[in-house]
Amino acid sequence: MQRTLRVYRFDGQPGSQPHYDTFTVEVEDAWTVLDALNAIKWHQDGTLSYRRSCRHGICGSCAMTINGKNDLACEKQVSTIKGVIVVEPLKGFPVLRDLVVDNDAFLEKVQRVRPWLVTHSAPPTDKERLQSPEDRKLLDGTWECILCGACTSSCPAFWDNDQFVGPAALLKAYRYVADSRDEGLDERLSVLDSKLGVWRCHTIFNCQEACPKSLNPTEAIVKLRRRLISEKL
C-alpha cells in the first residue's frame, strides 16, 4: 500500500531555513514509521537524518513528533495513522539536522537531580540490601523511563521556560526519592524545591499523554511535592 510522508528537513547550517519534503513509500503490513523512514533513507534520499537503534521501543533514540503527537517512530504503526504521515523533530529542542535534535540540555537536567542511589551507610557484605516487594513496587512506573525526551518536549511549562528541569528529570528524581534504599533527598532539594523544579509544573498532564512507555511524570511530580511539604512540616 502506498503512503505519503511529509518530513521536516533542516540542514543545520547557519542562516538556512527549514522546509518539508514529501515522499511516497510502498508500505508493508505491520510497518512502523521508522520502517517508512528507513525505506526513504535507504532507497530514495540518503541525506535524510534521524536517530534510531533498537527498533522496539527500549533505547529511546527515535522520539519524534508524528502527526502532532510525540511518539517513538519505531513503535508507531503506520496503519494507525490516517492520511498523510507528518514527521517532525521533537518540539522545544534545538534541531541539529532534519529529525535529529540536540539533547544535551535535556540530559544535563536529568543529571542535575543527582540520578543515582545516595546512601550514607555501607551496604551489607556479601549480601544484597533488603527491600520489601511493597517498597519495590513504589518504583514501578518510574525506573522504566528510556530518556527519549517525548515528555519534556510536550510540556507547556518547558516551552514557556526552558530552564524548567522538566518531567523526565523529575520522574528520574522521584525514582530515587521513592527508593527505600535511598538517603539522598537533602542533596536533591535545591534542584527539586525551587521555582524551576517541582513547583514549575502546571499539572497539565501532556507528559503522561506523550510518554511512549505509559509512565506518568505528573503523578511523580505531585508525589515529590507532597514529600517536600511533609519534610517541611
Binding site: 551496604p123 549480601k127 544484597e128 533488603l130 527491600q131 516487594p133 534504599r181
Partner: peptide
C-alpha cells in the same frame, strides 16, 4: 550481583526482600 544491587539496580524482590 550484590554489587549491582548496592549500586542501585531495581531488582524485583522475594517476599523476604532479597
Amino acid at each position: 550481583m550484590y554489587e549491582m544491587e548496592h549500586l542501585g539496580v531495581p531488582f524485583s524482590r522475594t517476599a523476604e526482600g532479597k
